[in-house]
């Protein structure tokens, strides 16, 4: 039943037994207790579960955990360099009022990190496209786009 999975999450090596039917999202939340990654739908529609895998933003509810063999996953918990520190993207979201209920925020912030990986200075168009898979019901995206633009400007 259970299968072995070796992968790296937030720079830490894991070698665990997982249920092969489980998604990466469920393994992160249930097996690794990394509950910062949220489940808003479980079917690839909301982006609340976004993590970064090898530099790409991915809906973790849409991939099987076993497919992560040998891969490097970064979740919201691993974005800041050390615990007790805050990553500039996270700080920009707080400073610009881009967080209301906060349920979309971990996914939104992980997508932002992928946008900033891809584009040195993303345009508003590229920002909006980059977060178009992340639904937010609180902010109208206005202050989220502001926050990301401030990061692009400061680069």
């Amino acid at each position: 039943m259970m299968k072995k999975l070796n992968f790296v999450v937030n720079n830490r090596k894991y070698s665990i037994e997982v249920d092969p039917r489980k998604t990466l999202l469920d393994v992160l939340r249930e097996d690794l207790k990394l509950t910062g990654t949220k489940k808003g739908c479980g079917s690839g529609e909301c982006g609340a579960c976004t993590v970064v895998i090898d530099g790409q933003n991915v809906n973790s509810c849409m991939v099987f955990a076993l497919d992560m063999e040998g891969k490097e996953v970064i979740t919201i918990e691993g974005l800041a360099p050390k615990s007790g520190e805050i990553h500039p993207i996270q700080q920009a979201f707080v400073d610009h009022g881009a967080i209301q209920c906060g349920f979309c925020s971990p996914g939104m912030i992980m997508s932002t990190s992928a946008i900033l990986e891809k584009h040195e200075k993303p345009t508003e168009e590229q920002i909006r496209e980059g977060i178009s898979g992340n639904l937010c019901r609180c902010t109208g995206y206005v202050k989220i786009v502001d926050a990301i633009q401030s990061l692009a400007e400061n680069k």
Binding site: G36, T37, K38, E77, I86, Q90, I99, C101, S105
Partner: peptide
Amino acid sequence: KDIKKVDGIAKAKGVARYIGD
């Protein structure tokens, strides 16, 4: 004043606990 939300950092860092957590 533009005071930042008191729970902003917890939410940004993914440590804010919702019912599912």
